[in-house]
């Protein structure tokens, strides 16, 4: 059941991204989707609208990029509660530091080890 919920919610968020690209003009690129979904996730999270989705769908809500935005927002809120204004700067970054750092490290290593295959 848990897996079914993750599948359905995660799939639905992806479909939303697909429709945004297919039904709007060419100006919506994958880069815009990435930026937009992270920002939208953060805003929804700040309005307390994203946590219920995480409670319901688990990884279905945390693995897609709005989940990244959610972590940023919750980190900032908790940071402010713990450290005041300094937390606004550090909280979001701290909450997502492992994922971002992993992407930098693995990205670097892969780029160093592999060669572009092209087409």
């Amino acid at each position: 059941m848990e897996y079914l919920k993750a599948f359905l919610v995660g799939g639905a968020i992806c479909v939303l991204g697909q429709l945004l690209m297919d039904l709007t003009s060419y100006r919506i690129t994958p880069a815009h989707i990435l930026v937009g979904f992270v920002t939208a996730g953060a805003i929804l999270s700040a309005l307390n609208l994203y946590q219920p989705l995480v409670n319901f769908a688990g990884a279905g809500a945390t693995v897609p990029l709005p989940g990244f935005g959610h972590a940023l927002a919750q980190g900032a809120i908790q940071g402010v509660q713990a450290k005041g204004l300094l937390g606004a700067f550090g909280g979001g970054v701290e909450a997502t530091s492992i994922g971002v750092s992993a992407a930098v490290v693995f990205g670097y290593l892969v780029a160093v080890i592999f060669s572009p295959k092209g087409e």
Partner: peptide
């Protein structure tokens, strides 16, 4: 590495900071 990820982090961090500021 940051040609596409950079903008994502910029908007993500700025939004997160704004949310923190509003919370504060």
């Amino acid at each position: 590495l940051f040609s596409i990820a950079g903008p994502v982090l910029v908007f993500g961090f700025v939004t997160s900071w704004l949310i923190g500021l509003v919370t504060f």
